[in-house]
């Protein structure tokens, strides 16, 4: 069984097998942890997505491997995981009883939001082939809800560059969705 950091590296290098393996490792943790945190430990306290991912990160990556690169990758992975989970959930609407547990409290109950997320996900697959560098920006900004500063830190880019990429990506997605939006509003 490979180490998480090795898998992260391979995933970064483009390996789909690594990606699958990472998800199977990370998802149960995210679920369990969210439940643990939400339901008992800290009444009255709320949790940010970044804290959540950080906790999972600390629990899964050995001390000796914790450097800024690995953390960034891990965050990207978590964003991906969020994205995929949502899509799964959207496709199997009645399966929410066995999904993320308490984490669903942080996820949109609103179905129109969910639909939007599903559409964005689909479009991201297309974006991957033309502007791959924007995909991760969308994942951490939109799916994971990081602020500009947090996203820039996680993706290791200057803040202004991130902001521009985010605007560009949104424009691209907006354009792609325009016909659909026009249809909805008419």
């Amino acid at each position: 069984m490979k180490e998480i950091t090795e898998l992260l590296q391979e995933w970064r290098g483009g390996s789909h097998d690594a990606e699958n393996e990472l998800f199977s490792l990370v998802m149960p943790r995210l679920r369990r942890l969210a439940q643990h945190l939400m339901l008992g430990e800290r009444p009255g306290q709320s949790i940010q997505a970044t804290e959540l991912v950080d906790q999972v990160y600390l629990g899964m990556v050995a001390v000796k491997d914790r450097d800024w690169q690995n953390r960034g990758h891990f965050f990207a992975l978590a964003a991906r995981a969020m994205r995929h989970h949502l899509i799964d959930r959207a496709r199997r609407p009645h399966a929410d009883k066995i999904s993320m547990g308490a984490l669903q409290n942080v996820l949109p109950a609103d179905s129109s939001k969910l639909d939007l997320a599903v559409t964005v996900d689909r479009l991201l697959n297309e974006m991957q082939t033309v502007k791959p560098e924007w995909c991760r920006v969308v994942e951490v900004k939109y799916f994971l809800g990081l602020t500009d500063d947090e996203a820039a830190a996680v993706l290791s880019m200057p803040v202004r560059t991130l902001q521009r990429a985010w605007r560009d990506a949104r424009q691209w997605l907006f354009l792609k969705m325009e016909p659909a939006r026009a249809a909805n509003h008419s």
């Binding site: 996820l107 939109y142 799916f143 949104r170 907006f174």
Partner: peptide, 16 residues
Amino acid sequence: RMQGFLLDPVIKRQEG
């Protein structure tokens, strides 16, 4: 034109 498109993230920042 976009009017806040996608600025509302999927995972909400928690209230508080």
